[in-house]
């Protein structure tokens, strides 16, 4: 292998990383900048935006709401995803293609269409009061296909004969599920919980249409982007989210590698 092409590609890779990181890294920089305006040149270093952020009641309640919604959504969509994944990987189903297609549909329907469609049915047909529950319902719709995909790849990854052996040895379906399928699926379940949690945590457009009086964090951030005086607090929060998600992603990867015996480093 010649030396030159490696260098060009490597340089490109570094450039690409700069392209995806530059905008994101501006957040922590401006979160410690002593100016209300998010613009250059930089002023002095300060922690005051972090202090204000922790004192900001609106932000705190938005964060709390978001965590609550994300927790419910990740649990509910993982249960539905697991049921569907088990059915689709373990049984020969007539009409499997269309059924899978139907469940995947939310991933290909534009978010804004999904948002207004749910708004129409909630307000004009069912006459529901918009609340955190309507947001959670919208997010479940979005997260079930994701959970199902993650869990299907996990369930396809281990030997079906393990379950058959358990059934042959006299366990019933329920026992087999808890003693064989579930333990083997745990890494997939963790991945599904994480993926649904982060998806719900960051989802804006459905929440934007389905929110009542209580807002979630993305809605709060969106409104604060229009009020410059609230912006530095939001950037401080964004930086914290960046750090937290870095820890969460690393943790998830570590769990996944431990779950798969650490042998498959290249498997994605």
């Amino acid at each position: 292998m010649s030396k030159r092409p490696i260098d060009i590609l490597f340089l490109y890779a570094l450039g690409y990383l700069a392209f995806i990181y530059l905008p994101v890294l501006l957040m922590p920089i401006f979160s410690v900048n002593d100016s209300i305006y998010v613009a250059f040149p930089l002023k002095d270093f300060t922690w005051k935006w972090y202090e204000r952020m922790f004192a900001d009641a609106g932000l705190k309640s938005a964060l709390y709401n978001t965590l609550k919604v994300a927790a419910i959504v990740s649990a509910v969509s993982t249960v539905f995803g697991l049921l569907a994944a088990k059915a689709l990987t373990r049984y020969r189903l007539p009409g499997k293609g269309p059924v899978t297609g139907l469940i995947m549909l939310p991933l290909v329907v534009p978010g804004i269409v999904l948002g207004i469609a749910l708004l129409v049915i909630a307000r004009k047909v069912l006459d529901l009061e918009l609340s955190l529950y309507t947001i959670a319902a919208g997010h479940v719709l979005l997260c079930v296909p994701l959970s199902m995909l993650v869990l299907m790849s996990r369930l396809e990854g281990f030997d079906k004969s393990l379950e058959e052996a358990s059934l042959d040895l006299g366990e019933n379906g329920w026992q087999t599920f808890w003693r064989v399928t579930f333990p083997l699926a745990v890494p997939g379940i963790v991945a599904s919980l994480l993926l649904s949690f982060t998806t719900s945590f960051d989802e804006f457009i459905l929440a934007f249409f389905l929110a009542g009086n209580e807002t979630t964090l993305p809605i709060y951030i969106f409104s604060s982007l229009r009020f410059p005086n609230r912006l530095p607090n939001t950037l401080a929060l964004g930086s914290l989210i960046l750090i937290a998600s870095f820890i969460l992603v690393s943790l998830g990867e570590w769990l996944r590698r431990r779950g798969s015996g650490g042998a498959t480093e290249s498997g994605v």
């Binding site: 995806i20 950037l235 964004g238 989210i241």
Partner: peptide, 20 residues
């Protein structure tokens, strides 16, 4: 991981960063 981490931050703030 290095490539995916930036996309785990808020979509809104990533878009806003381009404004900066």
């Amino acid at each position: 991981t290095l490539i995916t981490v930036p996309f785990w931050t808020s979509y809104l703030l990533r878009v806003f960063a381009w404004k900066i």
